[in-house]
């Protein structure tokens, strides 16, 4: 059963009409091909209309769409089932909100790392809603160092509402864990690609978000704070999330426009959540092409370019 957001309702209606028309064609043996075709055209047009006029808040909603694929789905599709998950930070435990391991991308080994959200209530809890603890970030760093040792490119997949703000997280140094990752990622000798596939919330995202290419899928957001929290702090009320979403310039197009991310990966017209297979293929092709490009550059130059890119960010007088 698919879930439809309020602004997706017209799509739902048309899809139902198409299904009904097809059903009538089957049961009455009347040729309905023409009608179905017309409805399909209407659906395509409507979808295009809705998805090309999304407000920032609607994009935030899409980034959290329950039908949207999560990290493991991307990795499994991209590596064609060769992904071998590696566990644990070798110090405290295995964080289920952060996953990683090698997988083959058309025969070539790549280190995949990312936050993982759960697909149902039980799994959401198991995955801690994609909010990693310090051991998650430390596991990520361990795997990045492993990739560096064996000269394998790294792809990080970002989808998190933030780093976990719990008591144990503070005790075990959430701040230090994220800081260390940022610092070390700047200096990794292998190519690093970071892809925001859903939510990119603040330090929790940046903790695996420093790379030669930092890119966002079209219907995602990336900023220093979620629109809800921003609303509660600056407006002192939860009711200004739409306004906050606009003010924060957090959509993929805005972030690209400000040169805070390198590229936007276009999604299929009806969004990653409705055309998952297409989305996986687009992402795979992007990764393949980009790794090839990045591997042509010498490691020390790549590192300098990476640092320079982040150093250029900022506006001052």
């Amino acid at each position: 059963m698919s879930t439809y957001l309020d602004f997706e309702e017209p799509i739902k209606e048309l899809e139902e009409q198409i299904a009904q028309t097809k059903q009538i064609g089957l049961t009455t043996e009347v040729d309905m091909t023409e009608q179905v075709k017309k409805l399909q055209e209407k659906l395509d047009l409507k979808t295009k209309e809705i998805f090309s006029n999304l407000t920032p808040w609607q994009r935030v909603q899409l980034s959290r769409h329950p039908d949207r694929p999560y990290t493991l789905a991307y990795i499994n599709a991209i590596s064609d089932g060769t992904f071998q998950e590696l566990h644990g930070d070798r110090s405290v435990k295995d964080d289920k909100a952060m996953i990683g391991g090698f997988g083959l991308l058309d025969g070539k080994s790549v280190m995949f790392i990312g936050q993982q959200k759960g697909i149902n209530t039980k799994m959401r809890q198991y995955r801690n809603f994609g909010m990693a603890n310090p051991e998650g970030y430390r596991k990520a760093l361990r795997l990045m160092k492993l990739a560096e040792k064996f000269d394998k490119p790294i792809v990080t997949i970002i989808d998190t509402p933030g780093a976990f703000p719990g008591l144990e997280a503070e005790e075990r140094g959430q701040g230090e864990a994220i800081a260390r990752n940022i610092y070390e990622m700047m200096r990794l000798k292998v190519p690093v690609i970071c892809i925001v596939i859903g939510e990119g919330a603040s330090g929790g995202a940046l903790g695996i978000g420093v790379g030669d290419k930092v890119v966002m899928l079209e219907n995602t957001w990336y900023s220093v704070i979620s629109p809800e929290s921003c609303s509660s702090i600056l407006w002192r009320s939860w009711d200004f999330k739409e306004k906050a979403a606009e003010a924060l310039k957090l959509t993929s197009t805005d972030m690209k426009g400000l040169n805070l991310v390198d590229e936007v990966i276009q999604e299929p017209i009806n969004g990653a959540h409705r055309s998952q297979e297409d989305m996986f293929e687009i992402t795979k092709q992007y990764i393949k092409k980009t790794i090839t490009e990045l591997e042509k550059i010498k490691p020390d130059i790549r590192i300098n370019d990476r640092i320079d890119k982040f150093c250029k960010m900022g506006v001052w007088k």
């Binding site: 800081a179 940022i182 610092y183 700047m186 200096r187 603040s202 330090g203 940046l206 978000g209 420093v210 990336y222 900023s223 220093v224 704070i225 921003c230 702090i233 600056l234 003010a247 924060l248 310039k249 957090l250 972030m255 400000l258 805070l260 990476r306 640092i307 982040f310 150093c311 960010m313 900022g314 506006v315």
Partner: peptide
């Protein structure tokens, strides 16, 4: 912490300063 009114820019300063510390 970060200055919310600079949103994405403020977030990236964390990376920027950390990168410079490496140098």
């Amino acid at each position: 912490g970060a200055r919310m009114m600079e949103a994405g820019y403020s977030l990236m300063q964390m990376a920027k300063v950390s990168g410079k510390l490496g140098q």
